[in-house]
Design a protein around this nucleic acid. Sequence first.
DNA 1: ATTGTTAATGCAAATAACTTGCATTTATTA
DNA 2: TAATAAATGCAAGTTATTTGCATTAACAAT
Lengths: 150, 150
Amino acid sequence: MLTICVIHTEKIIEALKKGKLKITPIRFKLLDVLEHTKKPLRVKDIIKIVKSDIVTVYRNLESLMKLGLVGQVFLDQKEAYFELADKKHHHHAICENCGRVEDIRDLIHHKLNKAALKASGFANISRHSLEFFGICKQCSAKLSKNSTTM
Amino acid sequence: MLTICVIHTEKIIEALKKGKLKITPIRFKLLDVLEHTKKPLRVKDIIKIVKSDIVTVYRNLESLMKLGLVGQVFLDQKEAYFELADKKHHHHAICENCGRVEDIRDLIHHKLNKAALKASGFANISRHSLEFFGICKQCSAKLSKNSTTM
DNA sequence: ATTGTTAATGCAAATAACTTGCATTTATTA
DNA sequence: TAATAAATGCAAGTTATTTGCATTAACAAT
């Protein structure tokens, strides 16, 4: 890891400075990991790669979220998942067999929020979280193979 | 509480029997609470009303979910919310100020799943979870009143 | 109705995710 | 290079959820 792309590095440093966050190795590695895996990661996963204290990771995730560099994703009730927040709004497809997560570009843009605003009677709707659950191609193949050999 | 509607009672008893679950007072009260509040509830809330052990509530929720009578809702990373599963598929609007939850009838039926299937490349998509976050009318009014008096 | 079987309950204690307090270290900036 | 303010990491605390086990209650068969 730590194959940091320069453009991205620049942007990150700028954002950190603007947010008055110090540029530390751990913070950098954390962002790098999220950048390179391109998938939502659990705190566990991040610790393993970043090789730092749990507490530090939690605190960094919190401050990076406040800065808007990192976003939390709701994939599982048990643990939180985090991803870089720089991509545009999107949804997720989660494989119920292997846990694979695919990004899905925002299916209907802001139409969803508008429709929900009307349907809910709320004063405003600022965001939504849309997660799909199913079986990915790989698992589907594996599962059907298993069932024929049994 | 415990103003049990007969028709519903019948259905529940039938379902419990089919699932080989005993019909116990706690289990009944639990279902009754979910039926009458009509909102997703936290385990905390349920315990307060059902007046039973936490563990019992968790175990009942689990078996009732397996039976398909109860569904878990993803409103908050910290704690799980539960609701009766007998209503048709719907979404939720959650007020970020007071926590109020409004049901929203399924906005676009199965179209969402179909679109996600295509976009994700999955073998199949079985369900989705769609939550909207915003400010409800009541909070909006309260908040704007507060800001004018300050 | 009574009894036997099996599931439901509740207590104690464990686990797991996440948080807080505090002392030490490190990044910035003057 | 020194001063300062934030970042780190250890210990220990919370909180949600789970597990083990003994007791109790539901129900099916007598």
